[in-house]
Design a protein around this nucleic acid. Sequence first.
DNA 1: GGCTAGAACTGAAACGTGTCAGTGATCAGC
DNA 2: GCTGATCACTGACACGTTTCAGTTCTAGCC
Lengths: 323, 323
Amino acid sequence: MTGVDVARRAGVSRTTVSYILNDDQTQSFTEETRARVHAAASELGYVPNRAARALRLGRSSTVLMPLPGVYLSPLWAGIVDATARALAARGHALVADFTSYGSPEAQVEAGLRLQPAVVIDTMAVERRIITMFEAQGALVLTSRPSLAADPFAEPGHRARLMQVEHLLARGRRRMASIGVAGKEDESRQGKAIEKLLRTRCRKAGASFEAHTLDPADPIPVRALVAEIAGRVDGACVVNDHLAVALVSACAAAGLRVPEDLAIVGLDDHPIAAALSPTLTTIAWDLEAFGATIAEGVESALAGQRASLGVEAMACHVVERESA
Amino acid sequence: MTGVDVARRAGVSRTTVSYILNDDQTQSFTEETRARVHAAASELGYVPNRAARALRLGRSSTVLMPLPGVYLSPLWAGIVDATARALAARGHALVADFTSYGSPEAQVEAGLRLQPAVVIDTMAVERRIITMFEAQGALVLTSRPSLAADPFAEPGHRARLMQVEHLLARGRRRMASIGVAGKEDESRQGKAIEKLLRTRCRKAGASFEAHTLDPADPIPVRALVAEIAGRVDGACVVNDHLAVALVSACAAAGLRVPEDLAIVGLDDHPIAAALSPTLTTIAWDLEAFGATIAEGVESALAGQRASLGVEAMACHVVERESA
DNA sequence: GGCTAGAACTGAAACGTGTCAGTGATCAGC
DNA sequence: GCTGATCACTGACACGTTTCAGTTCTAGCC
């Protein structure tokens, strides 16, 4: 089923078919011709050949999202899900590459093999990878500039603050923030968030302490529980993965949740709802985020150097048993 | 950088470049010409245009793996990771589609938009979706036939059996199997596995009972713990998600793990290692699996109706604190 | 020397699009 | 009644690749 078949069926030239199906505004056709072409196309189940179109236009309709190493988090799966649907509605195909090819070079090579029209930089990957994509001539849509402009618009900050607000509203006044001991980028972010939360606690007359942990190792989590038991009554944790480990360590240490220690997680990981006690957490509203990315892709393709407005990523408290 | 540039630089025709770079066995060239062409290609950093090649060949080099709704499991991320790397080594690009488009129709439409050379049926999606891909003319590589031929070669069976063996070896003689209340396909599999485990327990002189749960709801997990407390001393759970919920419910009920109840999970979810007590589980060896899929893709493209030998997916016990 | 076989290479035609540069009508304006 | 503009539509080319069907040249054979 090609454009020729549609043209023959509608009794027009292939050129006409192309103009009409692409809704070219510079051309004019009678309403009757338009209808005939559309009818013929849908009767024949015509779908434009992707390869031919890409060849002619010099770019594919593929949008690439490199995300190596973040697959542990259902949050990212949710982001990808929402983005893919928003892009699909506009005729683009999102390819999320979670694969860990080993080296950044291999990652970029594998990504470039798809010859994507746009590469989305979600800040989840090393900056170096993005730079390499740009060096190879890929069109990159980034969220970094807007973050630099106003770091506190960053969703991570708002979500963590929401945790503290929830704990304060529940009467907790001896607060701890628990993060992961991460890479440079993350820990810089971590410092900024810590400062934000500390300020908020001080304003509320609450004490505040910050801790960082290696999420792969349960031993420090247990040590932390022993350390803060009795001293702290509210903990906001950087993600649900770590929060689950914390809840579990509390149970093992005989610390009651939420009576002795209220715990709020982040991301609404599916396991959070299955835990005993069930985990109170912050969930993301991803639909709007996906739509924002799709818009960014459109304007990037239109030639404007657009950046992502991640401010659009809202969140809300999911109140369960742990806080 | 096109084939024309390479040809000009090497002083040969475009045709020659194509034959040599594709290593066409039906043509002959002097070693010297071959070397010149390869040199020119690498000096210019020539990469064949994917769209042009797809247009000419009538198929892309994209391999699609539809996986809607399984993103909760890091297991699948691991499978995709291994498969993508194996395929990348052979010049294919794997696209794993985790997106939940709502309807199977939308899923298939989005998948077809990529015009993949091969669609991989991993049994994670509804059979109906696969049928629709086939109806649209896609080349489907399936693992179902081989399973039908010998269901007990299926990895799920071997892994569950391994759980029971581990518990038996630890002296447990009052066994429970805990699965999820799932869809038709899964529950049929569930019955087969249940039978297998029951037989094994009987042979060892151990008691056996089977339970199924809704993984999204913690209440039945707690009810189950209350029910089996004191009666059962070993539990093998269908996945780590549910196993984490179980460990957590035991702690809340005051049941000691592993002393009162030993628990073995499945999949080696990253949270399993962070729990208190850490979760003993079964981990998959995914590298070989990825290679098997890549081979299947090659032979499917070569025209042989190949099926996947999922028997290649081996597994092993990861012994931690819970059993 | 004439003939064939093969080696080494090339010209040209597709694959299905998008789009520029037309073409023949019709129509308003003077 | 001519001109120029507008409408409705089309012919033909280009995108970069693969591959069929040659073409030239050399070597081997009787």
